[in-house]
Structure formats: structure tokens, C-alpha cells
Design a protein around this nucleic acid. Structure first.
Lengths: 161, 161
DNA sequence: ATAAATAGTTAGTATTATTAACTATTAATT
DNA sequence: AATTAATAGTTAATAATACTAACTATTTAT
């Protein structure tokens, strides 16, 4: 049997395992901050600026908006973000970083850098870039893949009708 | 802002999104089979043979054994697997494929092949191998990563003590 | 013979995802 | 201008999954 995890399992399963292992390592480094797994949200807002609506965050992180309500509530309770109604469109709420979040972000980046460089150890810098671009390309390829059910092709012999 | 998902988000988050997208595509192709996301288990057993214990499956798929109890129950209910007590060690139960599972596996493989080739479109065969080997190496690197909490390095100026 | 370890199970809890129904607001249509 | 659609966010209910602890049965180690 092949000892490469990607050959033993469906690609998506391998990716899920990687993601879980990565999250475990990262979350342990940051669990005392009480941001759970929500550092991605802080980083998203950090990158995108003061105009992140909940819907935007859901779209970027491929999460559903119902779950996002509670996550944002949690982050507000922990004082990492605040909600600001968009005066131009009062349906939208901008989720913005607080002073506390800004203070904490360097530690988050440090943890991510540590785990990233541990994860990518042994992979040359150019290869890392190539890997990132391949992963991005996979995501793009899958994002709008039409779905068609696959049916079982029973052999006539095994079907006694 | 960089438009590559891996540069916008922590690597683990990008991988989780990829995994989710992949699973979505695959599950839609197979949802009528009522194996939920458990085709990985069938494939694992297919590869490893008749001596897969629940614990082995958990170790391979990085799942916890408590959840595995219910999943195996579900797969038994749907007649995809059966439980056989290991006569050499009666604590262990081998999880084995049924005739139904064996009949269904070609359809699962076809679906995986379809989604894989869609996902990897535009990536040359040798590059695919390289990608798989990089993903495997990331998993190995992360698997036994020691964890150390990262603390916030407050500037003296911002701390009025 | 006893203690420790392992495989699996059950119960309880927490997290997350999913669906549907809802409010408030904005945009589109007649 | 009035009505209808659509959008952002919320709430409630349900289902899936993960995690912890406590438990049984069995095997291994002392």
C-alpha cells in the first residue's frame, strides 16, 4: 500500500486531515486568547479593512451566515470585534477590529508563521509558492463544478430481475 | 490584497475550505447511496483488507473513536459493513465490507476520479505527484509538532502599571 | 494474582451546519 | 407612489460531529 496519505484516501479527506492537524497545532498555541478557531476572521478583517460585513466573511470563509451570527456574538463578548451599521445601507453591519484585537494580532501572526514554517519545512521557497498556487487553482476548479450523481453500474449477472 | 486564498488566510483555513468544497462536490455525486461522508472508510477498508479495527480507522482518518461507534452503526444499518470479532483478541472488532459495499465501490471510485481530475485540471501529472508528496510531507511535519503557547508582547507604553 | 493497558461503548455536553421562518431595509417593477 | 423582489441579519429547531469522562470486557505486564 502506498504510504502517501493522498494516495490512500480521497484528496478531500487528506486535505481535511491536514487542516485538522494544522488547526490543532495553531489552536493550542492560541487557546489562552479565547478566540477559538476564529483567528481567520480577525485576519480576514485585518486584510480587508473596516468594511467587512458578516455576509462577506461568510463568503470568504465558506461558512453559513447563521453560524456566523453566534461567532460574531462570541467575538463581541470577548471584545475582539464590534458591529457598526453601514449608514449607506442599514441592513449591513460592518464587523471591525477592536483595540484588543489589534494588540493580539501580532501574536496570532507569530503563531501562524511558526506553524506554517514547521509545516512547510523541507519545501523550498519557490516550491511553496507553487504549492500555494496549485491549492488556489484547485479551489477555483472545484468552486463551480457542476454536480452529477454517479450511479452504480450493476453487472447483468448480479441482477436477477 | 493578494488574490490567492493561501495568502489571505492561514494555511489550515485554506485547506479546510478546499476540503469542504471537495467534499461538497463528491457528496453530491454520491448522496443517493446513503453513505454520507463515509466513503473514505470504505476505501480505507478496501485498501487495508479484512483486518481494519475501529481504532485503526480512527487513527488513519484522525477521527475519535466515540464518533466512530455511531458511524459504524450507521454503515452497518445501511448494510455497507459488518463487524467481526477478532478471535485472536476478542476486544477488537474487524470492520469488513459487505457485498453491497463491494458493488458500490466502483461508483465511488468513479466519482472520486471525476472530482480529482476536475480539481487538478491544469496541473501536469508530475506536478500532481509533487503536490501529493508535499501535502504528505506537511502532514508528517505537523503530526508531531510540539505545542507552545504564544503570548502577546505588549509594548511598555500601552501598559500602564 | 493483581494491576495496567487497550478496544469498544454509553452518556452528557459543546460546536457547527442546515433549514425554515422571521424582521428590517433596500432595490426593482408596475 | 405603491407594490413586489431581494438582501442582511436574526431566531428557533434539528441534525451531525467532536470531546470528555466513566464504564465493560479483554488482554498484557508486573
Amino acid at each position: 500500500m502506498d504510504n502517501n496519505i493522498c494516495n490512500r484516501l480521497p484528496l478531500g479527506r487528506s486535505l481535511a486531515i491536514l487542516a485538522k492537524t494544522y488547526y490543532g497545532a495553531l489552536t493550542k498555541r492560541l487557546e489562552h486568547l479565547e478566540i477559538e478557531r476564529y483567528y481567520s476572521i480577525l485576519i480576514l478583517i485585518e486584510n480587508h479593512g473596516a468594511k467587512c460585513t458578516q455576509q462577506f466573511i461568510c463568503d470568504e470563509l465558506k461558512m453559513d451566515k447563521v453560524s456566523m451570527v453566534r461567532i460574531v456574538d462570541y467575538l463581541i463578548e470577548k471584545k475582539y470585534v464590534k458591529k457598526v451599521v453601514n449608514p449607506k445601507d442599514r441592513r449591513e453591519h460592518f464587523i471591525q477590529l477592536t483595540k484588543k484585537a489589534i494588540e493580539v494580532l501580532p501574536a496570532i501572526h507569530q503563531a501562524i508563521d511558526e506553524v506554517n514554517s514547521a509545516a512547510l519545512k523541507g519545501i523550498a521557497k519557490e516550491k511553496q509558492k507553487e504549492l500555494y498556487s496549485q491549492l488556489n487553482s484547485i479551489q477555483m476548479n472545484l468552486a463551480h463544478l457542476p454536480s452529477q450523481k454517479i450511479y452504480i453500474n450493476y453487472k447483468k449477472a448480479s441482477k436477477k430481475v
